[in-house]
Measured scan of single mutants.
Amino acid sequence: MATADDFKLIRDIHSTGGRRQVFGSREQKPFEDLVDLGWLKRSSVDSRATHYQITERGTSAAL
């Protein structure tokens, strides 16, 4: 179930172009929650960072 923080984060991601790069596993937790909701997808993972991209469902949630 989505929380107020989830909606705040997806709106922030949407307003800044729909993509986010995250460093460190602790910082990934809120983004992984949005992946579980179907609002974000992991577009790539490298040794230092994970890249996320907003989905259509995420765009709808952000509006």
Rank of each mutant, 00 (worst) to 15 (best):
K29E: 08
M1E: 12
W39R: 00
D5P: 06
K8A: 12
K41C: 14
T16S: 12
K29I: 08
A4I: 11
V45Q: 12
L37W: 03
T59K: 11
L9F: 03
S60F: 12
S43G: 10
L9G: 02
H14C: 11
G38M: 04
R11L: 12
K41D: 11
R11W: 12
A61W: 04
D5S: 09
G17V: 03
G17C: 08
T3W: 04
A2G: 11
G38C: 05
G18A: 02
I10K: 00
D33I: 15
R20C: 14
V45C: 10
E32P: 01
M1S: 11
P30K: 08
S43T: 15
F7N: 03
R42P: 06
S60L: 15
D12W: 12
L37P: 00
D12F: 10
R20H: 06
G24Y: 07
K41M: 14
A2I: 07
D36F: 11
T3A: 05
F7S: 03
I10T: 01
D33F: 11
I54F: 01
F7I: 10
R19F: 14
A2Y: 06
Y52L: 02
D36R: 13
W39N: 00
K8N: 09
F7E: 04
K41T: 15
R19H: 15
H14V: 07
D5G: 09
D6L: 09
Q28A: 09
R48Y: 14
A4S: 11
V35S: 02
S60D: 12
G17Q: 06
G17L: 04
S15N: 13
S25W: 09
L9I: 04
H14L: 12
P30Y: 06
A62F: 03
T59F: 06
P30C: 07
S25L: 07
K29Q: 11
R20K: 08
S47Q: 11
K8G: 06
Q28G: 06
R48P: 07
R26N: 14
A4H: 10
V45G: 09
R11C: 12
G38F: 03
A61L: 03
Y52I: 01
S15W: 09
D36H: 13
G17P: 02
R48W: 12
G58W: 00
T3K: 08
A61N: 04
G58M: 00
L34R: 00
E32Q: 09
I13C: 02
I10W: 01
L9T: 03
Q53I: 13
K29P: 04
I54T: 03
R42K: 13
Q28T: 10
R48N: 14
E27P: 07
R20E: 04
I10N: 01
S60G: 09
F31M: 05
V35N: 02
